[in-house]
């Protein structure tokens, strides 16, 4: 079965061979787009987070066949530069495995709320697990990214 969708701005087609194939599997194994990470495959960890028609979702829980004609943005296409830079600057990346998912969730949050409080950030990132940083530096990075985006002409 052929599924066509838009991924990070490009029209792509994938041939899948079972109805339950996940969007994450298709992105990584068929399309070679390995930015979204595979960890828990049960929607717990958020490392596979992508924007599906603009909404943050775990790509491991989306059936690829549900994505016909839809818009998918991974860490490659969803994240403004200041968000990435802030993660590096603030030491919010250690092993880095959770980082792509976190960046997508942060991009989604800052798209809705340009100046989030710590509580807003914690609620928005509750579905992204990081076992290295202890989260404090990630929260610093979100504030830094928010300031960076606010200072950037759009």
């Amino acid at each position: 079965m052929k599924v066509t969708m838009r991924v990070d701005g490009a029209d792509v087609a994938a041939e899948i061979d079972r109805p339950g194939e996940s969007l994450l599997a298709t992105l990584r194994d068929r399309l070679g787009r390995t930015g979204s990470k595979n960890a828990c495959e049960q929607g717990e960890c958020g490392s596979c987070t992508v924007l599906l028609d603009g909404a943050p979702v775990c790509s491991c829980l989306v059936a690829t066949a549900q994505c016909e004609g839809r818009d998918v943005k991974t860490v490659v296409g969803a994240v403004p530069r200041p968000v990435r830079d802030a993660f590096v600057q603030c030491g919010a990346v250690q092993c880095g495995f959770c980082t792509p998912g976190l960046l997508v969730s942060v991009a989604d949050l800052l798209g809705r709320n340009g100046d989030p409080s710590d509580l807003d950030i914690r609620e928005a990132l509750a579905g992204n697990l990081c076992r290295c940083t202890g989260y404090e530096k990630i929260i610093d990075a979100v504030h830094t990214a928010a300031a960076g985006l606010a200072g950037e002409p759009r």
Binding site: P19, G20, S22, E41, G43, L61, V62, A63, A65, Q66
Partner: peptide
């Protein structure tokens, strides 16, 4: 039937079920 997939796809990913056909509600 599948909508959000937040229950079904976990079962599929863990090979607890392997549907030969699905009905998309989205």
């Amino acid at each position: 039937p599948v909508a959000g997939g937040t229950d079904l796809m976990v079962a599929v990913n863990y090979r607890l079920t392997r549907p030969e056909a699905m009905l998309d509600l989205t």
